[in-house]
Write a protein that binds this DNA or RNA. Structure first.
Lengths: 141, 141
DNA sequence: CCTTGACCCTCCCCTTACTGGAAGGTCTAT
DNA sequence: ATAGACCTTCCAGTAAGGGGAGGGTCAAGG
C-alpha cells in the first residue's frame, strides 16, 4: 500500500507518516523498482494505534513506549496503566495551572471598564504589581 | 545597567532578554567601548511588563501588542480588555479539551486491571476502537 | 603586573511534532 | 505525448527559548 492510502487509512497526514518513519516508529518496506514506501496491514494498524494514542494526548515519546508494549506479547498490563495514570496526573496539573490563569485574567478583566479612556487597570496591573487587587499566579510550565 | 542585572531585576533569564531584543521587543543602548548592552530603567520596566504578561499566559505576539499599548498613551482601555477576554476564551477551550482527555483516559484506566497479565484493555482500546467502552474524544489542537 | 573568576559577546544547534514548499521522478489515463 | 495525481528527498520554518563553544572584558587579589 502506498503512503497516501496508508495515511488515509490511519487518519494521519502523509507528512506525519513519513515523520514517524524518520523517527523510527513505523518502518515500511520499499517497492523494489520505484523506491515507493510499501505499507503492510500491520504497519497501518500501528499507524492507527499511534493516531489514537496521540489523539488522547500522549507525547510521541510515550507513544513509542505504548507501541512497543503493543507489539510485545510479554508486556504487563500494569506497565500500560502506569503510563495512562502518569498522563492523567500531568493533565490534572495543566488543568490546575490553566484554572489559575483563568482566575487571574478574569479578575483583571472585571477590574477594567474596557471603555475608550487610556486608563487601564489591566495595563497597570501588568506594569506594577503593587496595583494588583488579587494574587498574580505564575505559570511554572 | 548590564544585561545580567536587567535580567535579575525583571525576573527573566539573560537568554530570554537577548531573545526579546532579537525579536524587537526591547532594544537596549550599547556601551560605546565594549559593546555591552546597556538597559535603562524604562527598558527594565518593559522587560518586567513582558515577564508578567508571559506569566499570565499571553503568547509573545500578544505580549508585543500589549507592550505597544502600554507604551502608547493614545491606547483605549477596550483594546487591552479585548486581548484579555480573547485569552480567557482560549483558556476555556483548552480547559474543555483537557477535561475531555482526562475523562477518556480515566475511563481507560478504570477499565484496566493493571496487573501482571498481558491482556490490556487500554492497549486494545488504542488498537481497535470497536473495543472502546466509551467515546474517544479527539483533541483538535 | 598577572591571574582568576565572573561577566559579556556572537553564533550555532537542540527541543516538539509536525507543516510547507522546491525540485524532480513515476504512474495512469486520455 | 501529455496532464494530473501520485511519489521521492531535502531544506526551512514554527514557539520560546536553552545549552554550549569560542572568545573578549572587567574588577579584585596576590
Amino acid at each position: 500500500m502506498n503512503i497516501g492510502q496508508a495515511a488515509t487509512n490511519s487518519g494521519l497526514a502523509t507528512k506525519t507518516v513519513r515523520y514517524y518513519e524518520e523517527i523510527g516508529l513505523v518502518k515500511p518496506a520499499r517497492c523494489a523498482n520505484n523506491d515507493y514506501r510499501d505499507y503492510s496491514a500491520v504497519d497501518v494498524e500501528h499507524l492507527r494505534f499511534l493516531q489514537r494514542a496521540r489523539a488522547v494526548g500522549f507525547s510521541l515519546e510515550v507513544c513509542r513506549e505504548l507501541l512497543e508494549l503493543y507489539r510485545n506479547p510479554e508486556r504487563r498490563c500494569s506497565q500500560v496503566k502506569t503510563l495512562v495514570l502518569d498522563k492523567i496526573q500531568q493533565i490534572e496539573q495543566q488543568l490546575h495551572q490553566l484554572s489559575e490563569l483563568k482566575f487571574t485574567l478574569t479578575a483583571m478583566a472585571e477590574s477594567c471598564p474596557g471603555d475608550n479612556s487610556s486608563d487601564c487597570t489591566i495595563i497597570e496591573t501588568l506594569a506594577k504589581p503593587a496595583f494588583m487587587p488579587f494574587t498574580l499566579v505564575e505559570s511554572s510550565s
